[in-house]
Computed example of a mutant assay.
Amino acid sequence: MATSFFNEKNGDSQLTIYAMGNCHIDTAWLWTYDETKRKCARSWSSTLRLMDSYPKLNFAISQAQQIVWLRENYPQLYERVIEKAKEGRFFGVGGSWVEMDGNLPSGESFVRQLLYGQREFQQVFGRASDTFWLPDTFGYSAQLPQIMEAAGMTRFVTQKMSWSLINKFPHSSFWWEGIDGTKVLAHFPPHHYCAEVTVQECLETAENFRDKGRNNGAMMLYGHGDGGGGPTADILERLDRLANCDGIPKIVTATPTQFFDQLEKDGDSLCLWSGELFLELHNATYTTQADVKKMNRMCEFLLREQEFVQAIRFAQTGEFRSMEAEWKLVLLNQFHDVLPGTSIADVYFDAKNIYRRV
């Protein structure tokens, strides 16, 4: 009976879900940076084992800092990730050093997040990311499309805007226009970024999809997240069984690039949103941990001034000292649960020590 049920196919008009494995690991939150290093190792080693049994499994890594930690602390595991990356099964998304806060860092910090992140992705995956990936950040500055395009990214993914308390965002797929007129293609997966590919989640994806008639595809980011974990065998079994089951959206395994390539075909039908993407939630994060916010800004100014001095020094003597190591420390603390002030006390003990080093 079960086989007969699952073999009933969908019609051509059914919504298509583009499923991709991920493991949203907060670089710090209810745990410290040191624990995150272990979370990455545990989660990605589990994913590697599953890839041996499930050839459809692909997996997105979204933070360059976490890749560097893996290389430094678990070199053998890092080499196995590289092997799968060459097969196209591990791929880099986001292009940023960490999944940073989308409002508080300076414009220069946004640029540095993508400069150093894209360099790392190019080294590890053989290509820079074409998709800006910030599923859990508390709002998005209107200057980001311009910076994204300069970093080689013309696509954008988040899920957080669905958390707004009063005014629900009206689109799932749309063009996002920045303050200078730059437009990027944006998509908000209709379900949470830690999906388990249940029947209910698939139906909710179709129900919550807000651009019916303009487009007929939506992302689903599956795998346990926040604290790590990633995909499981149960999730992958459901992914296979529900791939084309009557009454449930069709499911295909895809990368963000493959999804957006399809979405672009309907680009003329999509609506335009100009300016900031304002999240009606977590607004108190603009005033919590004020000393951390102050130290972040002090370090941003300090590094800018020091690089100005180094540029003069280079012009006069030909010598130059790079500020890259210091910048990466500041960028780390701009993670979206650190700089806004939503992490545990131990995280801020570490963060303040980092600022003092800078």
Rank of each mutant, 00 (worst) to 15 (best):
L221R: 05
Y222M: 04
Y222Q: 05
G223I: 03
G223E: 10
H224L: 07
G225F: 11
D226Q: 04
D226P: 00
G229C: 06
P231E: 06
P231W: 05
T232L: 04
A233S: 13
A233N: 02
A233G: 06
D234K: 13
I235V: 12
L236R: 10
L236P: 13
E237T: 08
E237P: 00
E237R: 13
R238A: 10
L239R: 10
L239S: 10
L239N: 12
D240N: 09
D240H: 04
L242T: 08
L242Q: 05
L242H: 12
L242E: 02
A243Q: 15
N244K: 08
C245S: 13
C245N: 12
C245E: 05
D246R: 14
D246Q: 15
G247S: 05
G247Q: 04
G247F: 02
G247V: 01
I248W: 02
P249N: 10
K250R: 15
I251C: 14
I251M: 11
I251Y: 02
V252R: 14
T253P: 00
T253R: 03
A254Q: 02
T255F: 07
P256I: 03
T257V: 13
Q258M: 07
Q258Y: 02
Q258T: 10
F259D: 03
F259I: 08
F260D: 01
F260P: 00
D261A: 15
Q262I: 03
Q262R: 10
Q262A: 13
L263Q: 11
L263F: 01
L263K: 00
E264D: 11
E264N: 11
K265A: 15
K265H: 12
K265C: 06
K265F: 08
D266F: 06
G267T: 07
G267M: 04
G267W: 06
D268G: 03
D268V: 00
D268K: 11
